[in-house]
Simulated scan of single mutants.
Amino acid sequence: MSGALLALPRVQVRFRPGLTLSIALVAFFVIAAIAPSLLTTQDPLKINLGDALQAPSAAHIFGTDQSGRDLYARVVYGARESLFIGLAATALSMSIAFVLGVSAALGNKLTDGAINRFIELLFAFPVLLLSLLFVTVFGAGLTTLIVAVGVGTAPGYARMIRGQVLAVKGSGYVEAAGALGHSYPKVIRRHILPNAMRPLVVLVTLGVGQSIVWASGLAFLGLGVAPPSPEWGALLDAGRTYITQAWWLEVMPGLAIVSFALALTAIGRYVQQRLEGGLQR
């Protein structure tokens, strides 16, 4: 019995403090989005002018804003709206990119050329500029913000999806499936799309954090969600007036945005390495 136990392969589990911290941060913000009352008892909308612009302390660990509202509570409650913007914008962006990328890769030369020219035209505008134009034309608001960020980030994803589909399309097992008599739609459905889309799971992870950063940038310019919403970008916009006398109004929401985006990036990179077989247990 002991000999059989000794014969079992040893599985080495490497402790990764960065990855562990990233997962903990993402879990914290997910809890904040789902059940913020578990993380704070403060009302994020309660005004108390007597406590206005108080520095971080034991009573208010993130300080208070110009209306005396607890900033930690506002950051916690703002996670729901910010994460919703990130998820919705990424879903829209990936949907647009999927249609453009797959149509270009699987279509004829004329279709591929036309879609590529359209993608290059969108690439001529930086993401922020394209989003700014969209918000300026259609007006600020939650829906407009989501659509602006989704449309602005779609070209990059479309080019990646096109390249991935073309790579799988030219692989040996796809050619073998065609040689065995499988119809082209069946080859696309069973071989090309599943294998082309699997690595793109990482893009979705990275895209959520990126979308939150872009949306916060637009909100900082006053083109986001209207106050008194505690959405992270709106907090940055509201605090910039007081940046010289209350640094915490910019630093604390900014840390939330940066830490969440970096945590998602770290998790996405780890998943990518695992899919590519670059990590050992």
Rank of each mutant, 00 (worst) to 15 (best):
V201H: 04
L200W: 03
I85T: 06
T241G: 13
G222L: 10
G63Q: 03
L110G: 00
L221Q: 02
A59P: 06
P9W: 03
Y173P: 02
F29H: 04
I267C: 01
K186E: 14
S95V: 13
G268K: 00
K46D: 07
Q164I: 06
L236W: 09
A32N: 06
G172N: 13
P228D: 07
S259Q: 00
G172D: 11
P36K: 04
L106T: 05
L255R: 01
W214M: 15
Q12Y: 12
Q164C: 06
P36H: 04
L132N: 10
I23L: 15
P228Y: 07
Q210P: 02
T111L: 11
A219Y: 09
L110K: 05
N116M: 12
S183Y: 09
P36D: 03
D237N: 15
L275H: 01
I23R: 13
K169H: 07
A58R: 14
L100I: 12
E81N: 07
A140M: 10
P9E: 06
Y173V: 04
F15K: 14
F62I: 09
L53I: 02
V13I: 13
G18V: 05
R10G: 14
T136R: 08
R14F: 13
L100W: 11
P194S: 10
A4N: 12
L275C: 01
I188P: 04
V165T: 10
S211L: 00
S57P: 00
R162L: 02
L19Q: 09
I96L: 15
V11I: 15
L249H: 00
I61K: 08
V137G: 01
L223W: 03
P155I: 11
L193R: 08
G101I: 05
G18Q: 08
P227V: 00
V149Y: 11
G172Q: 13
F138H: 11
V151Y: 03
M1L: 12
G233W: 07
R190A: 14
G78F: 07
P44T: 07
M1W: 07
L206H: 08
L206P: 11
L249Y: 01
G3M: 12
G224I: 11
V187C: 05
Y77T: 12
L100Y: 08
G268W: 00
G239E: 04
Q42W: 08
K186C: 09
F118L: 15
G209I: 05
R69C: 09
L110I: 10
L5I: 12
L223R: 01
S95A: 15
Q54W: 09
T64Q: 12
A33H: 02
T241D: 14
Q66I: 02
P17F: 00
F123S: 05
P17R: 00
Q54I: 12
V174N: 03
L92H: 10
A52E: 11
S22E: 08
A7P: 00
P253S: 06
A58G: 14
R10N: 11
G101V: 08
